[in-house]
Structures are given as structure tokens and as C-alpha cells.
């Protein structure tokens, strides 16, 4: 089994992170904003695993498991908030929550 250069793994993680960031800035649909955050967390996970396998230690993968738990919690809360907002306003436009008075 040949080794993958660590830089390639980190660059892939960086590309995924930048794409997620672009989606986050570009989209105004709340659902796709959540999807973009998932993509960014996934890119960070790729970087963790690449850096962990550089030293042959399990630590990078352990950190990936923690980001996985954080992503699951974030998605659950985010989607619950999104559904509450959708039932109230019947729209997914992020601009419709620009004011904070409930």
C-alpha cells in the first residue's frame, strides 16, 4: 500500500472547505446554508484524518469523530429551528430573519 502525500489530503480538505464557504456566502436558502456548513465540517474532517495519518496515530481520526458528533448536534438543532421558522413564515429566505424581535 503506497502512501498519499499529506499535502494532497490537506489541499483536498481546503478545497472542500472553500467550496462550503462559497456556498454559505452565496445561498440564501436556509436549508442549503446548513448543507454548506456540513461541507465545511467535512473538509475540516479530511484535514484532520490526513494530518493524523501523517504520523500513523489514531488521534486525527478521534478528532474526526468529535467533529462528527458536533455536526450531528448542529444539524439536529439547525433543522429544528428551520422547521419552526418555516411554519411561522412559510419561507426559507435567510433575509426574512434579519430582525430579532419575535
Amino acid at each position: 500500500m503506497t502512501a498519499i502525500p499529506m499535502a494532497d489530503g490537506l489541499i483536498l480538505g481546503g478545497i472542500l472547505f472553500a467550496l462550503g464557504l462559497a456556498g454559505l456566502l452565496l445561498r440564501r436558502n436556509l436549508l442549503l446554508i446548513l448543507v454548506s456548513i456540513e461541507i465545511m465540517l467535512n473538509g475540516a474532517g479530511v484535514a484532520f484524518v490526513a494530518a493524523g495519518s501523517r504520523w500513523g496515530q489514531a488521534d486525527g481520526q478521534v478528532m474526526f469523530l468529535f467533529t462528527l458528533a458536533a455536526a450531528a448536534a448542529e444539524v439536529a438543532v439547525g433543522l429544528a429551528l428551520l422547521l419552526t421558522h418555516f411554519h411561522r413564515r412559510q419561507t426559507l429566505d435567510a433575509d426574512s430573519i434579519s430582525e430579532m424581535r419575535g
Binding site: 500500500m1 503506497t2 502512501a3 498519499i4 502525500p5 499529506m6 499535502a7 489530503g9 490537506l10 489541499i11 481546503g14 478545497i15 472547505f17 472553500a18 467550496l19 464557504l21 462559497a22 456566502l25 452565496l26 490526513a50 493524523g52 495519518s53 501523517r54 504520523w55 500513523g56 496515530q57 489514531a58 481520526q61
Partner: peptide, 30 residues
């Protein structure tokens, strides 16, 4: 706007990664 901003960040990250010495990932499987 978003395209330029993210592309700038990406170029910066790739520049920093490429400038570092080359490390191979270990061939061992955890």
C-alpha cells in the same frame, strides 16, 4: 463576491501547504 473571497482563501491555504516540506502519510492502517 463570495467566489473571489473563497478563492482567495483557498489560494492562500494551498500556497502555505505547498511551501511546506513534503511528508508522506504513513502506510500503516489504524
Amino acid at each position: 463576491g463570495p467566489g473571489i473571497l473563497s478563492a482567495l482563501l483557498l489560494v492562500e491555504v494551498i500556497y502555505l501547504i505547498v511551501r511546506a516540506p513534503v511528508y508522506a502519510t504513513m502506510s500503516s492502517i489504524s
